[in-house]
Nucleic acid binder design. Structure first.
Lengths: 149, 149
DNA sequence: TTATATGCAAAAGCTTTGCATGGGT
DNA sequence: ACCCATGCAAAGCTTTTGCATATAA
């Protein structure tokens, strides 16, 4: 939709650092996945969509895509969301920007949003429950308020 | 964990009403699923767990369980959550009690909780986005704060 | 009597895994 | 050299679907 995210480079560096830190070696397929995510990972992407995008210009087999996404999820570099259609979708996880999603049931559109009040409410709940959060998701479903049917 | 939920009967009646209202006929398998849910649907149950629970004492094939759960979800009678393991889990949806879940990543335990502040924050977001919500989920992951490792 | 419900078995996906090969460090 | 990464093809899984039969209304 938009062009390359502004913090793409930042994330790329972070990814490199964490991968190296985990004792992993660089490889063509994983690099391709990571670059693809840095470019288009702003919205929810399925493994197959990524694999398809890569297949056109080089490396990145299905297996490698799945394996890479699992690693990146493990390292907290991408965020995984399991859809009602049984397909897992992935997004770049930025260190300090939590965002969530609204699914329009009429149009199928997905809107990402950020909300400090919501984040605060979640932090409050965690405190009340006496737990430490490592991640959280908020999924909203409904229709955008319009006058027509 | 606990005994039969107090509002089980209430939900059973609601279910009957909605199913009839949708022009559906009663059937042994679906009845069994519904009764099972009324009894044990307080926590997240997978289709296969339900099917297994039914198989022991009567009707309820795999196919019927899946079909029933889809119908109940459609009618808003149960709430569906798609797990990271690729398995969908279901819970009875009570008309006026929203609750959400905390997943302890250390123990695997799942804690259900309610929080008015959180609900309010979500309602506020919806208003700000100009959307009408039909459902929403909040998923928390982390560890319960304890002193040991 | 007609539309729905059920069950079985087969099919459909998405995702994972075994294994041999290639590549980084 | 050693260990990790990659790709292919073959499983593994949950979930869906086709079809014949049984059953509610």
């Amino acid at each position: 939709v938009s062009s390359v995210p502004p913090d793409a480079d930042e994330w790329l560096e972070l990814a490199g650092r964490r991968l190296r830190g985990a004792g992993l070696k660089s490889g063509a397929a994983r690099n391709a996945v990571i670059e693809h995510l840095a470019r288009e990972g702003g919205c929810l992407l399925s493994a197959q969509e990524i694999a398809l995008g890569l297949r056109e210009k080089g490396p990145g087999s299905n297996a490698s895509v799945y394996r890479t996404l699992e690693q990146l999820t493990e390292l907290g570099l991408v965020h995984r969301l399991d859809g009602a259609d049984g397909v897992a979708r992935y997004e770049v996880a930025h260190p300090d920007h939590h965002h969530h999603h609204f699914f329009d049931e009429r149009t199928g559109e997905v809107v990402a949003f950020e909300d400090d009040g919501l984040e605060k409410a979640i932090a409050d709940v965690a405190k009340r429950l006496g737990v430490e959060l490592t991640s959280h998701d908020v999924i909203l479903r409904g229709r955008s308020s319009q006058r027509d049917s």
